[in-house]
């Protein structure tokens, strides 16, 4: 019951973010659905005992793969789906507690929170990057040698 409520709230919040970023109307509901999937994957990862950073990376990968796939089908830029899709993962609360700890002078605690914030942000980036790598097979962005010449 609690989980279903969370999913519904994620949907509403993601659609809200879609409106903030002015995504096209036909992408709003899809973006919300992708956000819901993201949150479900994150919760499933946490529930099965994975670390928060790894679950974030998995969820971000899911969101990015879904948005690449759907964006190709309905012909809109990937960002219009990917940005609302990954927003449920943004480590807003960790970032806030980092700030709070620094303001109160607990520098060690602040550093701990700060490192975790950075790791989670990095995990989001890693998921996006990996999905991009999957979807750009054959197009080739970045080589070291030219073996086919």
């Amino acid at each position: 019951m609690h989980f279903i409520a969370e999913l519904l709230i994620t949907f509403a919040a993601t659609v809200g973010f879609g409106i903030i970023f002015n995504v096209p109307k036909r992408a709003l509901i899809i973006g919300g659905a992708i956000g819901m999937c993201t949150w479900a994957v994150l919760s499933a990862g946490l529930y099965s005992g994975m670390s928060h950073v790894f679950s974030t990376a998995l969820a971000s990968l899911t969101a990015a793969i879904l948005s690449h796939f759907i964006a190709k089908r309905i012909r809109i830029p990937v960002t219009a789906l990917a940005i609302p899709g990954i927003l449920p993962l943004v480590p807003g609360s960790r970032a806030y507690f980092t700030m709070l700890a620094f303001v109160e002078g607990n520098y060690i605690e602040g550093l701990e929170f700060g490192v975790e914030t950075m790791l989670r942000a990095g995990a989001i980036a890693a998921g996006l990057t990996f999905a991009l790598a999957i979807f750009s097979f054959g197009k080739g962005i970045g080589h070291r040698y030219e073996p086919n010449r």
Binding site: T14, I19, I20, P88
Partner: peptide, 25 residues
């Protein structure tokens, strides 16, 4: 002009903010 009117964007910001405050505990 923008696709969504300004009041809708403010309202959406409210929904997004309150949703995330719930999701963050």
């Amino acid at each position: 002009p923008m696709q969504y009117p300004l009041w809708l964007i403010h309202l959406a910001a409210g929904f997004a903010g309150s949703g995330f405050s719930y999701l963050f505990g």
